[in-house]
């Protein structure tokens, strides 16, 4: 059974806004540091990498919502849209910093860089895959698209694969921190692969009374 947060409706709504504020704080803080020349010797690169890291963090948190509920009964579904959008915002600013500050402001140079390098292409692909998800992350789209909304939002897995490889290729060698986040990504994707098997097993062993809760959790994804 899912654990429900107690409290007023107001708090529930406000907590989502609080998440946006907390979630955007690191980006604003790093921008302030960079703009005031306190982000080290190579501020553009540092800002770009920190934004990328927060993109990965919010991506993992977004992907963790379903396993948290299905395996541990923790229900954070209310926050999933905010987590996903935070991931998108960080990816958007990360990409913008690359285009505006990191590259010479010559479109042909940027295009050549994208087309020649799988590293850049994968990052770009991951971002493009997130765009339709961000664009349809509203109640209207969910109603309008119906079952297709779920199908469309499975693009998150493709974005995770592209983004994860991009993240792994971003340094000369993998650091301990990178291993940690890549392991989480593998876990999140691995769970999705195992989920049908787990469900089949549960279906076989469970009584009909559990049917109801299983349908509910399946619908939430």
């Amino acid at each position: 059974m899912a654990v429900m947060f107690t409290g007023t409706r107001h708090w529930k709504g406000a907590s989502v806004w609080l998440l946006y504020i907390i979630g955007l704080t690191p980006g604003v803080w790093y921008f302030y540091l960079g703009a005031t020349d306190s982000l080290g010797a190579n501020p553009v690169k540092a800002f770009e990498q920190l934004l990328g890291l927060w993109t990965v963090r919010f991506l993992i948190l977004t992907l963790a919502v379903s396993p948290a509920r299905e395996l541990f009964g923790l229900n954070f579904i209310r926050y999933r849209r905010a987590l996903g959008l935070l991931c998108f915002y960080y990816a958007l600013v990360h990409l913008s910093v690359y285009v505006v500050f990191d590259q010479p402001p010559i479109l042909s140079v940027i295009l050549a860089d994208i087309l020649k390098r799988p590293f850049i292409m994968l990052g770009m692909a991951a971002f493009l895959l997130l765009v339709p998800l961000a664009a349809t992350s509203n109640a209207f789209s969910i109603r309008r698209l119906g079952k297709n909304w779920l199908r469309l939002h499975r693009l998150i897995y493709a974005a995770t694969v592209c983004g994860g490889i991009h993240f792994a290729l971003s340094t000369k060698v993998l650091s301990g921190e990178q291993y940690f986040y890549l392991a989480l990504i593998v876990l999140m994707l691995g769970y999705r692969l195992l989920r049908p098997i787990l469900k089949r097993r549960r279906r076989a062993s469970n009584s009909a009374q559990r049917y109801q809760s299983r349908t509910n959790s399946a619908l939430g994804n």
Binding site: G34, A35, D37, L39, A41, N42, V44, K45, F47, F101
Partner: peptide, 11 residues
């Protein structure tokens, strides 16, 4: 990028 040339805007 030449290091030590300031913040974002003087990169």
């Amino acid at each position: 990028r030449r290091i030590g040339t300031g913040g974002f805007f003087s990169s």
